[in-house]
Design a protein around this nucleic acid. Structure first.
Lengths: 121, 121
DNA sequence: GGACCTTTTTCACAACTCGTTCACAGGCTC
DNA sequence: GAGCCTGTGAACGAGTTGTGAAAAAGGTCC
């Protein structure tokens, strides 16, 4: 209705998350999330590479459109913002996983003791 | 298979384990494992020699890229770390087998009762 | 322009992970 | 049992990531 280019609307599903980049919208269990432009773009680029590790450098150039300067923490800060909003919208889930020294990976996982990194003993 | 883009994407399958070195990622039944860089590299080199005994010296030079000093226990320590994480991810399986005086061998085996190696508590 | 609000950027410090190395316990072979 | 080999837990320093908040940059309305 809005767009005449009905080629194909990209819809990214990651567990209970749904991202429709063309509409600048993300939904959690159907409920619209209030995300800023940068937040949504970061989430989108992560979702396009679901379950794969993406380096900060790649994320930065994908979202910001230029080369990341060394020691720039922008990606970390926006990952934090997204985590806070996603946790508020979908408590009990975790989506953005840190791979130390490598980057971030988006995948819907239920957060519970014994699930993640260290299930010692 | 469906990917024609990456000509040489190495994928190593060892039972329920899947290792994709180029993505710095290993999966257990499809679920991403949280491994450090060294852990993944050690697992990768073992997987490349699946079911064959690899000496500590060879493993060290493959993973660390230099000669192992005598009495260096790094390989043992990392074998331990891997075993813990693999056991957490895939209880009931055992992957890294010790060959006394020789080295380690990677092979997916279901851990059987009464084995003796892991005495039940 | 000026007040007011939201978003983005930057910074400082806290918290954590990793790789390394020890020390000691436990096992294996002779 | 002696002596070497392997398993295991822990400590340390360096470097990486998490986090709260201030500063800067836009945007909107009057």
């Amino acid at each position: 209705m809005t767009q005449a280019t009905e080629a194909r609307r990209e819809v990214l599903d990651v567990g209970p998350l749904q991202i429709i980049p063309d509409e600048h919208l993300a939904r959690a269990d159907g409920r619209a999330l209030m995300l800023s432009i940068r937040e949504l773009r970061l989430l989108t680029e992560l979702a396009r590479r679901e379950d794969r590790i993406v380096t900060r450098e790649d994320l930065f150039s994908l979202v910001w459109g230029r080369e990341m300067r060394v020691r720039d923490r922008s990606v970390d800060v926006y990952v934090r913002k997204l985590r806070v909003k996603l946790e508020a919208a979908l408590p009990g889930w975790s989506f953005i996983h840190t791979h130390f020294g490598l980057g971030y990976r988006l995948a819907a996982e239920r957060r519970q003791a014994g699930n993640g990194r260290f299930t010692s003993h």
